[in-house]
Design a binder for these strands. Structure first.
Lengths: 182, 182
DNA sequence: GCGGTTCGTTCATTTTATCGAACGATGTTC
DNA sequence: GAACATCGTTCGATAAAATGAACGAACCGC
């Protein structure tokens, strides 16, 4: 896929997600409608400043214009997943997520205690969370799709909706990667 | 910082890291020396295709040209770090890493067993690994900078050099995020 | 000291991305 | 159903980015 095509799809995708018309986005970004029209039809080769203006007008990070991914909940149990790099005795690894470079990510360690469930408000659109349980048991996930996780379990879910953290044991520890588009 | 400046710094940085002269990179990328010269001096506004060619010639991912970060080992013990979002009882979180969107990332769960240390070969330049211990104790890190980690400990280190995984207990579990530029 | 190479910069030319206006199509209002 | 608004596209003019050749500087071997 050529850079031009990627840009074309990305702009169209992000624009429709933002609910903006081509004309409106052009106005916001301070560009000519024709420029956008050409870019989205794959007949352009925009400069950095042009792209920058578009990203700013769309209110998304710059590199967000180079991806195609779409998120969804994924659960990988501690004893599941196909190990890779099983060549060395005493070492095995399971691929949990192959993250596109688009989003900004933050890595947290979260500690929960029993009897104090927490409902986190929806984050910005496009946010995804990756959780790996370190200790204890925890019930985690978006409303209607929570999962009960044991140590080593991995759960990825969209976090642009209300979601839930709850310890099922006295304490529970998480490695939490938050991945969001701005 | 304007996009132009960011690009300028990034190209210069990546080029010197790759050990290429301006002329050599221009040849590789199929661009004129003058173009590169202007870009690196901040007097350019390159098109996507131009940047794409540069990124390809440098053998780094496209979005790698929009960052300023430089890696180095970071250790955060389980009981260390300043909690944020301590507003809710029963929930606390510690920011371990705020990752720039530049790199591609993969999330692994790794399991080590006692008596079978593993030395991983250097990955490609710029690769960084983030490790959080899930269970057991483990000795991890690049040669000369290994750390003994307990459950909940977080260690980030450059992985573009030989590095080390070793269980200090019968078994040890890790959440391992590999962050690399291609 | 003198050819040869490689470095990064500068300048005139060519190529091209962007602009602005006009266009047909579609949908809305009175 | 005519007047109007908004959509996205197309086309000529213009501003700007990429080119290629020439330049001085630094370095090396002889």
């Amino acid at each position: 896929m050529t850079p031009t095509e990627i840009i074309a799809r990305a702009i169209t995708r992000e624009r429709s997600r933002a609910g903006l018309s081509l004309s409106a986005l052009a106005a916001r970004a301070g560009l000519a409608k024709s420029t956008l029209s050409q870019l989205e039809s794959g007949r352009g080769n925009p400069s950095v400043e042009t792209l920058w203006a578009i990203a700013a007008a769309l209110d998304v990070p710059f590199s967000y214009l180079f991806e195609t991914a779409v998120p969804g909940p994924v659960l990988i149990r501690n004893d599941a997943g196909t190990p890779i790099k099983a060549t060395d005795a005493g070492f095995s690894a399971v691929l949990l997520a192959d993250c596109p470079p688009a989003a900004r990510r933050e890595l947290y360690r979260a500690d929960l205690t029993l009897g104090a469930p927490r409902v986190a408000a929806a984050h910005q659109p496009g946010t995804v969370e990756h959780a790996v349980v370190i200790s204890g048991r925890a019930r985690i996930g978006p409303a209607g799709a929570t999962e009960d996780l044991d140590p080593g379990d991995y759960y990825r879910y969209p976090a642009d909706q209300a979601h839930h953290y709850e310890a099922l044991t006295e304490t529970a520890g998480l490695a939490l990667m938050m991945e969001h588009p701005r």
